[in-house]
């Protein structure tokens, strides 16, 4: 198989693995943060505003890790620099 085929195979499988493996830890930690926040709100309903604001900020921070994975995966699929390099050469 020539270079472009290998690049295609590796890009697609790398993006799939990046998204799949990369979203495990953010999902677990978002669940944990949400669980803690819910039990805190149940204990102290008066502080619900502060807790949920802090929760939103924390969730955004955690989620940005998953978003990095998504961006890398999308770049690998739709705007792959290696693929473009190989395709740009005449005759592949």
């Amino acid at each position: 198989m020539d270079t472009s085929t290998w690049i295609g195979i590796f890009s697609v499988s790398a993006s799939a693995m990046c998204m799949g493996i990369g979203s495990i830890a953010p999902a677990l930690s978002e669940g944990k943060a949400l669980q803690q926040a819910l039990s805190s709100i149940a204990q102290q309903p008066d502080e619900a505003g502060t807790i949920s604001r802090t929760l939103f900020i924390g969730l955004a921070m955690i989620e940005s890790i998953a978003i990095y994975c998504l961006v890398v995966a999308i770049v690998l699929i739709f705007a792959n620099p290696f693929w473009n390099h190989v395709i740009a050469k005449p005759g592949g």
């Binding site: 955004a60 921070m61 989620e63 940005s64 978003i67 990095y68 998504l70 961006v71 999308i74």
Partner: peptide, 16 residues
């Protein structure tokens, strides 16, 4: 960088 990529990633993934 995180601020920029977070907003971009969320909106871009939504439309995609």
């Amino acid at each position: 960088v995180a601020l920029a990529v977070r907003l971009f990633g969320n909106i871009m993934s939504g439309s995609m």
